[in-house]
Design a binder for these strands. Structure first.
Lengths: 228, 228
DNA sequence: AGAATTGGTACAGTGAGTGTACCAATTTTA
DNA sequence: TAAAATTGGTACACTCACTGTACCAATTCT
């Protein structure tokens, strides 16, 4: 029963952002004063986190210039900065767990979703589509929010909590496998199809498309969203 | 990004222990000096937690005597002391989520479990059986460990993490529904059947029995363990 | 040339948690 | 019955993480 230090949490948060693709290699991250506000911590605490990340080789700090992202694969990241037992996790493990939670969630959501929730999903799908081209961070954020909103629409808060635990691993997906060209648009198309099935209350189709969407991440099943 | 205070964590932990059945109403809990060692915190922090719990009516502290457990249902427990959105959770939600995770885990465990893990499961089943009669705390503890060990035997750490998130809700099962006479023995019998199927590597049977076991908690399906 | 922004540094203050010590009342032990 | 052990109650000094503020020097933007 010990609390993790805020600076350590911040280190993990920043690594997750980089791994999730919010900042690309060589890119300059927001200034310290922006970052600490964004993370909700003081500048001193953020600097401590950055100091640690620089030692690990995750970022390079250039005075009077900014914070620059290095390649995560070259960095020596301590295990305590990754999700528990991350070194034993493969992409297929994450996909399997997500299917276990999200497919039943789809079925329930088809029965229970209300107009307000559908409106919210439409907005999330639109924001994600807008971010496909040039805003990877925004894309990933709204991708996550879309899936979470579906699980929430299931009305089962336990599923929501389980989904959050699983997504903690998915955030590091770039460590498993690199993003491919055009993948974002395909994901956005899948979301459109899922949303459409939800609106029709077509539980069978919804589960099927969600399965295809998640399998696609794993590159086992290359069924395109247009096939549904 | 704010840390929860240790004393607050301790409050939630103690409530979980009581809700989980570790201590019964009217019973005397361990002395402060034992409890704080058990929870891994200092006595001052524990006393702060107990002070809060007494104000909520969860416990009564009698000087020179001890800490006594009151009825949880009479206590006014703040929501921040329960799992997130706990008031919107029903027992069937927990069971559904557990089935989503544990049934696939059973299937994988049948393929991957090794002799050492089987030995560990046998020990857990035995310890749980020994606790059926007179050690509710031990019973619940080994119940949880048995299920966790199966999920771990699946070799999928993401499932393990999801299971832990879900079990956080199950710990409060006494808030959903009261324990019934003889229920412990039935659960122990189910565990025996599950273990037997695992040893035979009988994936279909294992999933089926696990389904029956979890459904039984919900009192929807009253199929007895002997029926498998 | 001046303003704004960058990381680097220092310092006082807060608050939670720890560890230790001791007290008074009660119960257990010898 | 007297001594020892155990109970919760209290106090105090200490550490540590974090906050908030302020200012610096170098660079870049206007």
């Amino acid at each position: 029963m010990q609390k993790e230090s805020l600076s350590n949490q911040a280190m993990r948060e920043i690594i997750a952002m980089i791994a999730g693709g919010a900042y690309r290699v060589g890119e300059r991250m927001p200034a310290e004063r922006s970052l600490c506000e964004q993370l909700g911590i003081s500048r001193g605490t953020l600097r401590k986190a950055l100091e640690g990340l620089e030692k690990l080789g995750v970022v390079s700090i250039r005075p009077n210039s900014g914070i620059y992202v290095n390649s995560l694969s070259d960095a020596k990241i301590t295990h305590k900065l990754l999700p528990p037992a991350f070194d034993n996790v493969r992409l297929e493990d994450v996909v399997l767990a997500r299917k276990a939670i999200e497919i039943p969630a789809c079925a329930l959501a088809c029965e229970r979703i209300d107009d307000k929730q559908i409106k919210a999903l439409e907005k999330l799908a639109r924001l994600m589509q807008d971010a496909v081209e040039d805003d990877l961070a925004g894309f990933l954020k709204h991708d996550m929010l879309f899936h979470q909103a579906i699980v929430q629409a299931s009305g089962n808060m336990v599923l929501v909590k389980a989904f959050e635990a699983i997504y903690e691993y998915h955030r590091f997906s770039s460590v498993f496998t690199s993003q491919q060209e055009g993948e974002e648009q395909i994901a956005a198309d899948f979301h459109e199809k899922i949303l459409s099935a939800l609106k029709r209350r077509d539980s069978v189709a919804c589960q099927k498309i969600m399965t295809g969407h998640l399998d696609y991440m794993q590159r086992y099943n290359k069924t395109a969203p247009g096939d549904y």
